[in-house]
Amino acid sequence: MLKVENLSISFRTDEGLITPVQDIAFEVQPGRTLGIVGESGSGKSISTKALMQLLPGNGIISSEAKILYTDKSGKTRDINRLGKKGRAIRHIRGGEIGMIFQEPMASFSPVYTIGNQMVEAIRLHRNVGRKDARRIAVEMLDKVGISNPEARVDQYPHEMSGGMRQRAMIALALSAGPALLIADEPTTALDVTIQAQVLELMRNLQRDLSMGMIFITHDLGVISHIADDVAVMYLGTIVERGPTDKVIHEPAHPYTQGLIKALPSVDRLHDRLTPIPGDIPSPNDRPTGCPFHTRCTKVIAGLCDQHQPQILQVGEDHTVRCFLHEKQQRASA
């Protein structure tokens, strides 16, 4: 339903043009969840904002990028051609693609009640009257597990707790009936017990509504329980992409391997953690060649620091950008 190709995003800044996202490609199918994992600055949030033309004013999407979206009526459009303003994109934002952010307090207006904001969103995207819209809002709040929705609908965001606000956020995003939901770190600000509740809720809702979902997080543990497919991002490129259990059990890229090894686990109390050496380079001075070569333990001198590795197939639907595999494949061929 969503197919992204050659997406690069640049920003005009005082220090010149920086490119935090370079040449990424992914697709989302209805009823499936794509998880995007990456550390801070890897460009995971920016690339999904581009999908809805929500980049700030100094952001530029490369002209050769294709963001093909097939909407509910089966029409396919390139969002990159739609521009930032106008009817078509406004219809897609919210109506076709819904979005949930990390900080629910920042995404609700503090001066309107939850119901007010939901009714506004529903009426914008569905052809219903005020009364019906309110009924839908109450139904949605009930669906996301908010007790006593008739009373809650008239409350202000500050009157709710963190977990409840995030549920209300989900209800708001779903109330317009989107076909694709983008969730940007929706559980990061929540406590673990509440996080478990919200994850279960999102999984159930997705199954019931057979929505496509893009789930962005830095937490590999969360990803492995919610996503069908995973894309691992590092410094603006997708270094590995594949089915979740493949990527977690047989990580092909040294960065993915390092991430998994660096994770503290309750089951390995006595082992020392293995961090990935070095720091994440700033997007201002991206390393040439493979972006990970400065921290990679398996770096091939003269190759990784000079050339950008190409996307390679290592398994069914499992691709990786790394020279190590190119070598192996050539050796076996």
């Binding site: 996080q195 478990a196 937490d219 590999l220 543990g221 492995s224």
Partner: peptide, 24 residues
């Protein structure tokens, strides 16, 4: 309940958090 709610990376391990009712 807290321990059961930690999502572990191993997809083989069953993730079955104990549902705590309500909020803190």
């Amino acid at each position: 309940a807290l321990l059961s709610a930690i999502p572990t990376i191993d997809p083989d391990e069953s993730f079955d958090p104990i549902r705590l009712e309500g909020e803190i």
